[in-house]
C-alpha cells in the first residue's frame, strides 16, 4: 500500500536517500532502524509528503501521493512526527479529539473513540489535564493516542496506515512494550499498515514483522529481524562490536548485545 520506486532525496550536495525502492503491505508492522543520520526521519518525512523526492515516486494505496487531497489522505493515514510541541493549554482529551478532525463522524462516536485510545495508551487518568503540564513521556503518549484516534475506526474500501517517528523515545520500559504490543495487535487484527522508526534494536527484533536497516541513506537489509539482524551487518552499520544471542523464551527472537571491549 506504500510503495516507493527509486526514491532519491538530495539537499544541495548531500544525498540523504539513494535509490530506495520498497513496498509495505497492509497489516505489516515495519520498523526502520539505523544509526543517527542514516535517513530514517528523512524517509518518513518523504512518505508523509513533507519533502518532495528529488527523483523517484511514492504511491499510497495504489495512487501517487501527489494526487491525494490532504483531506482524503488524512482519513486513511495518520502521522506522528518526532517532536510535536503544543504550548496552548488544551486538555488531553481535546488533543486526542483533534485526531478525529478529518472524519465526519458524530461527536459521540469521536468521544467514544477518544476514550478507547486514551485507555490503550494509559492516558485515561490524564484526560482533563492541560497538555503543557504533562511530562515528556505523557505528552508523547497523548500525541500517539491522537494519531491512533485518527485511524481507529475501520474505513471501508480504504486501507489504513500509520507513520510513526520514534514513538517510544520518551517512554519508560513498560510503556515502550505496551505501545509496541498494541501496534503489533493493530497490524495483525485490524490490517493497519505501520511504518515506525526505532532506535532500540531489541524492541524491533521482538515486535517487528519486518525490519529495514538504513545506513548512510541506503537500504542495506530488509526482512524479518532474525534474517537481517546478523552480527556482521549490525556491527558494520552501527560501528560497534555486536554479539547476537537468542531470547531465552523464543529462539526466533534475536537479542542484540554490544560486546565488552
Amino acid at each position: 500500500m506504500y510503495k516507493t520506486t527509486n526514491l532519491k532525496i538530495q539537499f544541495g550536495q548531500h544525498v540523504l536517500l539513494h535509490n530506495l525502492s520498497m513496498e509495505i503491505e497492509s497489516g505489516q508492522l515495519c520498523m526502520v532502524v539505523g544509526p543517527n543520520g542514516a535517513g530514517k526521519t528523512t524517509l518518513l518525512r518523504c512518505l508523509d509528503g513533507e519533502i518532495n523526492p528529488t527523483e523517484g515516486t511514492i504511491e499510497f494505496d495504489g495512487k501517487l501521493l501527489d494526487l491525494w487531497t490532504t483531506r482524503e489522505l488524512a482519513k486513511s493515514r495518520a502521522v506522528l512526527p518526532q517532536n510535536s510541541s503544543l504550548e496552548f493549554p488544551f486538555s488531553v482529551q481535546d488533543v486526542v479529539l483533534m485526531g478525529r478532525m478529518p472524519h465526519d463522524t458524530p461527536y459521540e462516536t469521536d468521544l467514544e473513540i477518544a476514550h478507547q485510545v486514551l485507555g490503550v495508551c494509559d492516558c485515561q487518568h490524564l484526560a482533563q489535564r492541560a497538555f503543557p503540564t504533562l511530562s515528556g513521556g505523557e505528552q508523547q503518549r497523548t500525541q500517539t493516542a491522537r494519531v491512533l484516534a485518527q485511524v481507529w475506526q475501520d474505513f471501508p474500501g480504504h486501507d489504513r496506515f500509520l507513520l510513526l517517528d520514534e514513538p517510544v523515545s520518551a517512554l519508560d520500559l513498560s510503556h515502550q512494550h505496551s505501545l509496541l504490543k498494541l501496534l503489533k495487535e493493530l497490524a495483525d487484527t485490524q490490517g493497519i499498515g505501520i511504518l515506525c522508526t526505532l532506535h532500540n534494536l531489541n524492541l524491533a527484533a521482538q515486535y517487528a514483522d519486518r525490519c529495514l536497516i538504513l545506513d548512510q541513506g541506503r537500504l542495506v537489509a530488509d526482512g524479518a529481524a532474525n534474517e537481517v539482524f546478523t552480527e556482521e551487518t549490525l556491527s558494520n552499520v552501527f560501528d560497534l562490536d555486536i554479539w547476537l544471542e537468542q531470547h531465552p523464551q523464543d529462539p526466533s527472537i534475536p537479542l542484540i548485545i554490544p560486546r565488552l571491549s
Partner: peptide, 8 residues
C-alpha cells in the same frame, strides 16, 4: 505538518 496530516 500536524495540521496537514489532520487534513487541512
Amino acid at each position: 505538518n500536524e495540521a496537514r496530516h489532520l487534513g487541512f
